[in-house]
């Protein structure tokens, strides 16, 4: 069971309180009808599925119920950082250096 830091509650809590919510920073297009079928497919289905630092969303569903973002290394499952929804992608150079 992972330990996850909720950036809203500012507490590190067990995975059982959280629900994974897929890759982060995939914005819903402002005007979907303007998109080609291929562009819409990319939004709906194409995922980076990276081996390494993965930008992803979690929801503190059995806590504050907020969605937030995280960077987790999918090889070690270690969280590098978590941050609030809407915040920009964090610069990972410091975390990567630390690893």
């Amino acid at each position: 069971m992972l330990l996850i830091h909720c950036p809203y509650c500012e507490e590190t809590l067990p995975e059982a309180e959280f629900a994974y919510a897929g890759e982060a920073h995939i914005d819903r297009p402002a005007d979907p009808s303007a998109l080609s079928d291929e562009e819409w497919r990319d939004y709906l289905f194409i995922r980076s599925n990276v081996k390494g630092p993965h930008f992803e969303r979690w929801r503190h569903v059995h806590g504050c119920a907020r969605f937030f973002n995280a960077v987790r290394d999918t090889v070690s499952d270690k969280f590098m950082t978590t941050y609030k929804a809407g915040d920009p992608r964090p610069d990972l150079t410091a975390e990567e250096a630390a690893q």
């Binding site: 069971m1 992972l2 995975e15 994974y20 081996k51 993965h54 992803e56 987790r72 090889v75 499952d77």
Partner: peptide, 12 residues
Amino acid sequence: QYTSYSQRGGLP
């Protein structure tokens, strides 16, 4: 529930 390449998996 989460994507991973770690081949570990949790106890729960």
